[in-house]
Amino acid sequence: MRIDVSKFGTVLLSRPAGREAFLSARAYSVPKENIETIELDFSRVKVLTPSWADEFVSGFLETFGSRLEIIEGDNLSVKTTFETLNAIK
């Protein structure tokens, strides 16, 4: 299934907001059963920071591991955020 991350806002900045978005997504956006893969689609996000992304994506990684896929899209702040996070991992 695919989650449109822009539904949590198009300007995604702080760690507490990223954590809160993950908790909300886990409760309301992810079906309880029969999930093969989760796609997090950032293509409609306007501003993303590593702080927000780290809190949001890390939560999904812990649950779904290799079944998690990230769709970055073309936004420069999204691409730079994932360049930074990927360089670290």
């Binding site: 300007v11 900045l13 702080s14 760690r15 306007k46 501003v47 993303l48 920071t49 590593p50 702080s51 936004n75 420069l76 702040s77 730079t80 955020t81």
Partner: peptide, 20 residues
Amino acid sequence: EDLAELFSATVSELVGNCFD
């Protein structure tokens, strides 16, 4: 627009650190 968004994310990281 793309540079404005990137710079805003940059500033946000610095501001966020003050609180984090």
